[in-house]
């Protein structure tokens, strides 16, 4: 881990599902502290791209470096990268057989070898940050979707990662719960977390993103600061997409 190297450095990334070319030579560099929003139509490869970063998907070609550590075939580099890269999923994926607190302390205790008291103190701190410390003893099934997603964010934060990946974090939420999750994400962004978010929340992108990336058919079509991206998109495909997302 070299914290002066780019947080994420992806070069020529290829991914195939059978004959389907899901990612076509993607190049992407994210600096430490940068917030990048990736958008694009469904099937464009945006989720696949961020899932390659922590190897929930194995890539077939190209190179991925996280803070200078190359993702090679060794398990050691994978472990190291997963420790530093947290992820928040569309479906929350909280562990239903554990309480909220246990969800948050599990990985720090198993992976970081933290003592229980220390892990619980950290967990409570992050549960306060996402504004649900009073739910610590409940099970995920007893919480609303918005609360579950905030727990999922706290769980990822408890590992004290350098980078957070968000894979459509608000897409499975009822409309009235989206704001509470986005608020937490905005706070994180303002505190300087390195974030890569796959999302269609254009308001969020406008507010916090340093860069917006538009993907289509496994390629990065356009990459710009939010100001330029929303007001003066260069590509026809981007314009079409924006008109569909913003048009209602």
């Amino acid at each position: 881990m070299d914290l002066t190297a780019p947080a994420i450095d992806i070069a020529g990334l290829d991914k195939f599902y059978g004959n389907f070319h899901a990612l076509k030579g993607i190049d992407l560099r994210v600096a430490k502290g940068e917030k990048v929003v990736i958008c694009g139509p469904s099937g464009s490869g945006k989720s696949t791209l961020i899932r390659c970063i922590n190897q929930l998907e194995e890539h077939d070609g190209g190179a991925i470096r996280v803070f200078g550590t190359a993702l090679d075939d060794s398990l050691a580099s994978l472990d190291e990268i997963r420790r530093e890269v947290g992820m928040v999923f569309q479906q929350f994926n909280l562990f239903p057989h554990m309480t909220v607190l246990e969800n948050c302390t599990l990985a720090p205790m198993l992976v970081r070898k933290a003592a229980r008291a220390e892990a619980e103190a950290t967990a409570m701190r992050y549960l306060e940050k996402v504004r649900i410390p009073d739910q610590a003893q409940k099970y995920p099934g007893q919480l609303s979707g918005g609360q579950q997603q905030r727990v999922a964010i706290a769980r990822a934060l408890c590992m004290q990662p350098e980078i957070l990946l968000f894979d459509e974090p608000t897409s499975a939420l009822d409309p009235e719960m989206i704001a509470e999750v986005l608020d937490v994400m905005v706070t994180l962004a303002q505190e300087g977390m390195t974030m890569v978010c796959v999302t269609h929340e254009m308001g969020f992108a406008r507010k916090v993103a340093d860069r917006v990336i538009f993907m289509d058919k496994g390629e990065i079509v356009e990459e710009a600061a939010p100001e330029d991206f929303f007001t003066a998109p260069k590509s026809e495909r981007t314009r079409l997409f924006l008109s569909q997302v913003l048009g209602h």
Partner: peptide, 15 residues
Amino acid sequence: IPLGQEEAAKALGLS
């Protein structure tokens, strides 16, 4: 068990 369970555990760095 939903697939996401194991993915979440992987993403947290569990062996």
